[in-house]
Amino acid sequence: MIPSTLAYTKASSIDEAVAAVAAGAVPLSGGQSLMPMMRLRLAAPEAIVDLGGIPELVGICEDENEIAVGAMTIHREVAASELIRAHAGLVADAAAGIGSPQVRNRGTIGGSLGHADPHSDMPATLIAAGASVLVRGPNGERRILVEDLITTYLTTTLEPGEIITQVRIPKGDDHSAYAKFHRRAIDWTIVGVAICIGDDGVRAAATGVADRPVRLSAFEEVLNGGGSLDDAIARIAEGVEPHAGLDGSVEYKKHLLGVLARQAHAEASSR
């Protein structure tokens, strides 16, 4: 039993979901983060609205410039998508590496972003891929770069009443990779580095080295200015603020950044 009482509704359209969220309900997607949080009493929403009954939130399609991934698309589908693999292989790889098959059968791309855990793999890979989200709220629809979505632990720039409806990933040749380090199979990532090498240069982002996913700006600057990978790695930790914790010291995490950047860069270059 979830410790506190709870009112549940299932929305059958985005408008219905937005109305419920605007009235104070918390959106429920795959429940793979929200349910454990409720069981541990870290979250105690009075009302939740299930997004699981809205067909238009599920599925992956494309237009000329972008891939559109519905917010309720599960990690298993993202991992298996040839379309995503063709244009942003690192996003498919990250999805394939999340939790266990059971978690990937329920957990969603929209939930991963809405949850805003600094150790979650999806945000950094989507930042490196230059992705945005479409969000819907009481005042209509707007677009937010994933890079501008997450501000600190479990906190986003979504306004009250807004939900993520779609993730938009730019199309292009895929030279991308995500390298992460964790101790045991389903443990969360300690540090991860996502790299995309595109026509407009290198874009890189990291998981686990701040209170939110971060762009690795100094690293990018060196590479995009024609510098060597060694020089870029020497500056990779500039501007990042890892926290010391049970999963490692600040020095250790900065060290991991360099090791993983080398791995991800080699893999991205070879794709």
């Binding site: 793979q32 349910m35 098959p101 329920r106």
Partner: peptide, 13 residues
């Protein structure tokens, strides 16, 4: 038909 965690799914779902 999909393997899921019954501790992370509500009965109403």
């Amino acid at each position: 038909g999909d393997a899921v965690l019954s501790c992370s799914t509500l009965a109403v779902q």
